[in-house]
Design a protein around this nucleic acid. Structure first.
Lengths: 195, 195
DNA sequence: TAGAAGTTCTAGCGGTGCTATAATTTGTGA
DNA sequence: TCACAAATTATAGCACCGCTAGAACTTCTA
């Protein structure tokens, strides 16, 4: 017992730490979605988790580090959503299914989507230091265009860019939501090639 | 003379006011391009124009009002650039010309482009309250697709969305700049239809 | 159970956007 | 020309921000 007890204590501490970290991320996300990112202050977060401010800096380097963690979580979720949409799509409907899934993700969590892209992370897509969550998400698009056309990478990038453009311009109210259906339909047609 | 003098004084004051307003916008833009938007503080701007802070609030409602003014200026400039590209394009090269002009604008003034879109202005595109600068810019794209296809509005929106996506993902380092040429080429092909 | 090691909090620094109020300059009529 | 009103500008301060040094406390060990 005596040799295992310290381990169990250490494990519990680690669990607590991770739970608290998750709590911080969750609170940041919730507040951002309800009141916008400017309301996500370090003081506010420390209130939410009932710890003083310095505790937050034991988990993250800075406020921006917290936002980055939220963004990573977002990329993981969108990656999973795209994978699901890709795999469950009816034959010939893959592009439409993935496009809809992407836009629905962006529309249902606008603050999350905002932080995923508006944050100027120093995280290039095709870099060695790119987080796996980001790689995975982009891989879903790449997978979709494998075999179709001569440049699947470039095509995937354009598909992503188009979806991001629609999502971003919708989020910032540049596009009237009324025409969204038509928009998606024509977008899908643009990226559907005769087999 | 005596009845016109007060007018001349008032005119001079108005001119001074407008000059100072332009100076504020110009300083904000310069600082943002050199050091990023977080460096554009009200104190810093008041230093640049050698007036105290409250003077700035005689010109703009808030810091965000200053950014909005810069953004409007940006929309005016990109509108002119797109118009020029559209009108001077060789036959059959209009889409390519306009796309290149758009991306070059975004790449050459990244901070300006950033504020034009990252700012969540309450300014829908197709609204009555949409500033004319915004209308004009979008009109250039609309003009391009008039007659082509059945839904020029939707097509223009998709074109804009695609360009914005490329510009934004490039600016935030998600796209490696290396493939930019290929990207633009394929994008132009997507939006070029057989006559 | 005393002390070491690890945690957490208090309190404060320099900065931010913004503004009430004081000081100053400017234009005007006697 | 000059006193006075009106417009303009500056000073100084508020509440809040991100962040952190050092004090206070808790937990574990011997």
């Amino acid at each position: 017992m005596e040799t295992t007890l310290p381990n169990r204590i250490a494990e519990r501490k680690q669990r607590d730490r991770e739970a608290r970290r998750a709590q911080i991320i969750s609170a940041a996300r919730r507040i951002a979605e309800l009141e916008g990112w400017p309301s996500v202050t370090v003081r506010r977060l420390s209130d939410e988790i009932s710890y003083s401010q310095p505790v937050l800096y034991g988990h993250f380097e800075s406020r921006e580090g917290i936002l980055a963690a939220v963004a990573i979580e977002g990329f993981q979720e969108i990656g999973l959503a795209l994978e699901k949409a890709r795999k469950r799509a009816k034959p010939g409907k893959m592009v439409e299914s993935v496009a809809s899934a992407y836009l629905e993700f962006a529309a249902s969590s606008p603050a999350l989507y905002e932080v995923m892209f508006s944050l100027s992370l120093n995280i290039p897509f095709a870099d060695a230091a790119t987080p796996p969550e980001l790689r995975f998400a982009f891989a879903q698009l790449l997978e979709m265009f494998q075999g179709q056309g001569s440049k699947p990478e470039v095509l995937s990038e354009l598909f992503w860019a188009g979806l991001h453009g629609i999502a971003d311009l919708t989020r910032t109210r540049r596009f009237p939501p009324s025409r969204q259906k038509e928009r998606v339909k024509m977008f899908v047609e643009l990226f559907t090639f005769p087999s």
